[in-house]
């Protein structure tokens, strides 16, 4: 018996929720970046899962491949921002940064 696709969907939704909550609740720049990675990974899981259900092509996996590359670029940029932010604020706490307020 194959594993139902719905199991992967539920798991993906929960992982996405975990990532989103982490992003919104935590204030450490680095942990927020990790939360973003969690969300990206949950989407990847769904892509691969649906690709498994439509196995005639590899579109989902190719898409996941692209997402991983984007995630790498995003991590590099995000970490560079973290360093710049740290030099600027002398802290990694994001709620200190509110230059864009009204």
């Amino acid at each position: 018996m194959d594993i139902e696709i719905s199991s992967y969907i539920v798991l993906g939704a929960l992982l996405f929720g975990i990532g989103a909550i982490g992003f919104l609740v935590r204030r450490n720049f680095l942990i927020q970046l990790m939360s973003v990675e969690l969300m990206l990974n949950s989407v990847n899981l769904l892509l691969v899962g649906f690709n498994r259900a439509h196995a005639s092509s590899h579109d989902g996996q190719v898409f996941t491949f692209v997402v991983i590359a984007i995630a790498a670029a995003e991590a590099a940029l995000g970490l560079a921002l973290a360093i710049a932010y740290y030099r600027f604020k002398n802290s990694a706490e994001t709620d200190l940064g509110d230059l864009l307020r009204h």
């Binding site: 989103a20 992003f23 919104l24 927020q32 994001t94 509110d98 230059l99 864009l100 307020r101 009204h102």
Partner: peptide
Amino acid sequence: VTRLQSGVVHAQGTLIA
């Protein structure tokens, strides 16, 4: 409405949610 725009990532993210 400008009170909502705190510039803090969490608050703004909550609004998106």
